[in-house]
Simulated scan of single mutants.
Amino acid sequence: MQSPPFPAIVQHLTGDRTPRVWSFLISVFGDLAQAPDARISAALLRQISAQIGIRPEAMRVALHRLRKDGWIDSARAGRTSAYFLTDRGRAQSAAASPRIYGTGPGAETAWLAAFNPGQPGAHQDEAGVWLSATLLVSATRPATADAFVTPLGPGTALPDWMTARICDATTVQMAADFARALAGLRPLLDSAPGLTTLETTALRVLLVHGWRRIVLRTPILPDHLFPATWQGPVCRDGVADLLARYPKRPLAELEAARTALPCG
């Protein structure tokens, strides 16, 4: 059986829709270059982006946007530039990492809190999902005594209108599509054992990017409070399995792989 070419693997995972370039680059930096001294050369960024069909001019526009937004900065490195996360970009990447790379649910427990309907909005600083002006679902038990609070254990069955507020239909569909893509991806990868270092790196970042787009749209709550059709746990487990299969390579190794490519 002939191995599928890498573009076919990318097409299967992305559905032939190239990711938004600036968002993909955030995933690149977040996965490969969170360390304070990490630098990625412009040439390496071009090579990683090219693996999934991103054109150099689109990458340049996206880098300009990320610099303008304060996510990244650059410095000269010989005749080219090297890019790195700013303190702000690094802090935001670090804050998101536990959710992106976590192998378990965002929370194990949750509470339903009902506040005084005569004071709507009085406790809006409480973290969680507000089902109404006075009804909150949270992974943190509200500290105020001015609320009725009850735990939402694994056996709790929330009505559909509540689970729809916790996770909207668009996000549920995104997870279903991604879970389906992951299931079909495994046999493709099993028949493509000879992927290059840059190909496996681009694949890894695509996996991180695909899951990041979904998980960061959701609240930090136990899995059992999500809609019945929620495929988030399947996506989380599938991504974790593939990231272990394709571990992150040191930037020095990636730069060496990039320079070893034939010219022209």
Rank of each mutant, 00 (worst) to 15 (best):
Q2H: 12
P4T: 12
P7H: 07
A8F: 10
Q11I: 08
T14D: 04
T14E: 07
D16C: 10
R17K: 14
R20M: 08
R20A: 11
L25R: 00
I26D: 00
S27G: 12
V28D: 02
G30Q: 07
D31G: 01
A35G: 10
D37N: 14
A38V: 08
A38F: 09
Q47L: 12
Q47H: 14
I48P: 00
A50M: 09
I52C: 02
A58H: 11
L63H: 04
H64I: 06
H64A: 15
R65N: 08
L66P: 05
G70P: 04
A77P: 01
T80C: 07
Y83I: 05
T86Y: 04
T86L: 02
R88A: 13
G89T: 01
R90N: 04
A91Y: 09
A94R: 14
A94K: 11
S97M: 15
S97H: 11
P98Y: 05
R99D: 11
I100A: 04
I100W: 03
T103D: 15
T103P: 05
G104N: 03
P105F: 02
A107N: 06
A107I: 05
T109E: 14
A110L: 07
W111E: 02
L112P: 00
L112G: 00
F115D: 01
N116K: 09
P117N: 08
P117M: 08
P120F: 05
G121V: 11
D125P: 00
A127Y: 09
A127R: 14
A127E: 15
G128D: 01
G128R: 01
V129W: 02
W130G: 03
W130I: 08
S132N: 11
S132C: 06
T134E: 10
T134L: 06
L136D: 02
A139S: 15
R141D: 02
R141L: 08
T144F: 07
F148K: 12
T150K: 12
T150Y: 03
P151R: 11
L152E: 03
L152G: 02
G155C: 06
T156S: 13
T156E: 12
P159M: 10
W161C: 09
A164T: 07
R165Y: 06
R165H: 13
R165E: 12
I166F: 05
T170Q: 13
Q173G: 08
A176T: 14
R180K: 11
R180F: 04
P187K: 06
P187L: 05
L188D: 01
L189T: 07
L189A: 07
T197P: 02
T197N: 07
L198Y: 00
T201L: 09
A202F: 07
L206Y: 00
L207Q: 04
V208Y: 02
V208C: 12
V208I: 15
H209F: 13
G210F: 03
W211N: 10
W211V: 05
R212S: 12
R213F: 03
R213L: 12
R213G: 04
R217E: 15
P219V: 05
I220Y: 05
I220A: 15
H224Q: 09
H224D: 06
F226P: 00
P227F: 08
C235N: 09
C235R: 02
R236P: 01
R236N: 03
R236I: 03
D237A: 15
V239L: 08
V239M: 07
A240P: 10
L242C: 08
L243F: 10
R245Y: 08
R245A: 12
P247L: 09
R249E: 13
P250L: 12
L251C: 04
A252D: 15
L261N: 11
P262A: 10
P262M: 08
G264T: 13
